[in-house]
Simulated assay, not measured.
Amino acid sequence: MATATHPDTSQPTGFIRRNRQKLAPWLFLAPGLLFFLFYVIAPIFQSFQISFYQWDGLGAKEWVGMQNYQELVTDRAFEVSLWNNLKWLLMYLLAIPAGLGIALFLNQTVTGIRLYKSLFFFPFVISQVVVGLVFTWFYDPTFGLLNTILESVGLSPINVLGDPKLATYGIIAAGLWPQIAYCMILYLTGLNAVDPEQIEAARLDGAKGLRMLWHVVLPQLAPATFIAFVVTIIGALRSFDLISIMTNGGPFGSTRVLSFYMFEKALSEYGFRMGYGAAISVVLFLIMLFFIAYFLWSMWRQEKGR
């Protein structure tokens, strides 16, 4: 006698049921990805598009092709802004070794280390606006602490923010203060993940001091170093708030950087040259993309060689 066969219902049916473990992470990521696409990726392509137009932000757009980019080549203010960005980039990189040195010091077991950590951590938690105001008062030629110190040692006072040759470096010094604190936090986190067994093995082999740091500690801090480089480069290239607070681009436009010049052209001048401002933003984006892509490629090559 033939028996009736029933379909096997022990396995889940339907695409979602079969792939729910694979789909679950994407469902959690979906809101963040949508926000990222809408607020980051889409504006990037929109900036590229607007850079080929002459537009005041309200009326009709007029196609001008590469005219905005051709004007950048002969724009003296753009040249000054670009060179200032390079100064920011080179000097901001000092935050990485400085942050590493402070992190190595704070990683020791000494009396009052929590107080020292709090003092070094403090610049990171305060606003850039507050940093700009503090350093503006510090540099003030009449009552600033800097000139008080210079006069106490017999030197003549200087007007840092009023001198076109010194103003950019004065603002960079103000920006380095919180940036060093940020790099310090990254390296302190990385030092907590350093393998103590490798440290002990290196000590048994006679490694200490700089040899220990270079051959044992720094290779394990490579992820923290990569993040520090990327964040520092992005911070240097998108510098805006300190310049706006401390000099507003002066004196005589000597402290402009690309992000500030983009703001001036797109939103602060009569006529509102959105297309020209977008062209400046595209140049700034490509510079950032070059450096970040280089570090990503270097990290990939290093990981591949292991």
Rank of each mutant, 00 (worst) to 15 (best):
F260H: 15
L58I: 12
A60V: 11
Y39G: 05
L23V: 04
Y169G: 01
A174W: 06
D8N: 13
Y53F: 09
A293E: 11
V282G: 03
R211F: 02
S81G: 08
A24T: 10
A60K: 14
L145T: 12
F124Y: 12
G170M: 06
P43E: 09
H6V: 10
L37W: 14
A24Y: 11
A193M: 07
D205G: 02
S244E: 13
T136V: 07
L133H: 01
W26Y: 15
V110A: 12
R306F: 08
W300K: 15
I96V: 11
G170N: 12
V230E: 09
I149H: 10
Q179L: 02
Q128W: 13
A2T: 10
I234S: 07
L286S: 08
S244K: 13
G65M: 05
F36R: 01
P43T: 05
L93C: 04
P43W: 08
I41H: 10
T136F: 11
V129C: 10
A60Q: 15
E71L: 15
G277M: 06
I227S: 10
L119V: 06
L37A: 13
A4V: 14
M66C: 08
L82H: 10
I171M: 10
Q302G: 03
V160E: 00
N107I: 05
Y69I: 03
A24N: 07
V160K: 00
P31K: 09
D56G: 08
M91E: 06
F52R: 13
L186V: 08
P12H: 08
R301Q: 14
S47A: 11
T232Y: 02
I233F: 04
L119E: 01
V64A: 12
L186P: 03
F295I: 14
Y169T: 15
G14F: 07
T111L: 15
A181H: 03
F226D: 02
F36D: 09
I158D: 01
L104Y: 02
V194W: 02
L82V: 05
W26T: 04
L58H: 12
I233L: 07
T168D: 09
Q11M: 09
I126S: 02
W214V: 09
E197Q: 15
F226S: 02
L145R: 04
L191K: 03
F143C: 04
G250S: 08
Y92A: 10
Q67H: 13
Y270H: 05
Y294H: 02
Y92P: 00
L115F: 13
Y270I: 14
I243P: 11
E303A: 06
L145V: 15
I50L: 11
S118L: 11
I245R: 06
A77H: 06
P141Q: 12
G190L: 03
A236M: 04
L100M: 11
S152I: 02
Y270C: 00
Q128S: 12
S10P: 03
K61P: 02
F48C: 08
P12K: 07
F229T: 07
F295Q: 15
L33I: 15
P31Q: 08
F52V: 09
Q21D: 05
D56Y: 05
A77N: 11
L94A: 10
I158L: 09
G175P: 10
I44V: 13
L284P: 03
L176I: 00
Y187D: 01
K265N: 04
A42K: 15
R76F: 11
D163G: 01
W26H: 12
